[in-house]
């Protein structure tokens, strides 16, 4: 596999590492019951860039991503050590409101999961639970979010239709619009294109290239070409450890670790 360097996303890939830091992860250990899923992770994730997380199945990619907006806490046997500093504060600090964390750090899942409501109500959901009721304000934000998610033209005439009637790729863009509606600073995506077809995948990648201008994006992907196409930096995980983190162009052309090289050249995983 030869990744196409010219398509790498970051506005200036060679300086990706010098950008501001969105997440400063320090000595992160994560356990599910007795089993340790992440080991001593230390990494600085840059702002306004797409960071790709790659690695074989079960190596802890999703676990890591879900630590960044405290989604893992919903699991009963989950335990975490270490710090994740976001906006100057450890998001796991006792006095941090988890609701606030999740509003500022949005998430899109592997399988599109629109609510069984109308297209409009899906996007308006996050605003409604914040108590926003004014119709014109809702209308505005819904339209803006659908436009940002590049799905407005396809759904503008049927906002009242059920979201579940959309195609898989449209549902996923709707989920992105839904996440954008609450105006997060970060978008976390867990293999957002693994359940949809190649054309829809292309549209979402295009969308991510657009969104990264205003958002910090962290994306788990199974697809190394995708990481090469859209990300500015890449983290390679293996068996719960962060093996290597660097600019995507460097990871794919001149990896610093033998195990990374084995993985990206397809000798493993």
């Amino acid at each position: 596999m030869t990744p196409d360097k010219t398509k790498a996303l970051s506005a200036d890939p060679t300086h990706a590492m010098e950008k501001d830091i969105a997440f400063k992860v320090e000595d992160l250990n994560v356990y599910y019951g007795e089993k340790q899923a992440l080991k001593k992770i230390k990494v600085d994730i840059p702002t306004h860039s797409v960071t790709a997380i790659i690695g074989p199945s079960g190596c802890g990619k999703s676990t890591f991503l879900r630590c960044l907006n405290r989604m893992n806490e919903l699991l009963p046997n989950f335990r975490i050590e270490g710090e994740i500093i976001f906006d100057g504060q450890n998001i796991y600090d006792k006095n941090v409101d988890v609701i606030d964390v999740r509003q500022r750090i949005g998430m899109v899942f592997q399988k599109p999961n629109p609510f069984p409501k109308s297209i409009y109500e899906n996007v308006a959901y996050g605003l409604r639970i914040q108590g926003i009721k004014k119709r014109d304000l809702l209308d505005n934000i819904v339209e803006m979010s659908l436009k940002k998610a590049a799905i407005w033209d396809e759904v503008k005439d049927r906002l009242a239709h059920p979201a579940l009637a959309l195609s898989g790729g449209q549902q996923q863009r709707l989920c992105i619009a839904r996440a954008l509606a609450v105006e997060p600073e970060v978008l976390l995506l867990d293999e957002p294109t693994s359940a949809i077809d190649p054309i829809a995948t292309g549209r979402i990648e295009e969308l991510l290239r657009e969104l990264v201008k205003s958002y910090t994006i962290v994306m788990v992907t199974h697809n190394m070409q995708q990481a090469a196409r859209v990300s500015g930096s890449t983290a390679y995980f293996l068996l719960g450890e962060l093996i290597e983190f660097d600019e995507t162009s460097k990871i794919f052309t001149n990896p610093g670790d033998r195990r990374t090289e084995d993985y990206i050249t397809g000798r493993f995983g």
Partner: peptide
Amino acid sequence: GLKEGGYALG
């Protein structure tokens, strides 16, 4: 997944 979608929106 549906519940997670709800939680992820705060």
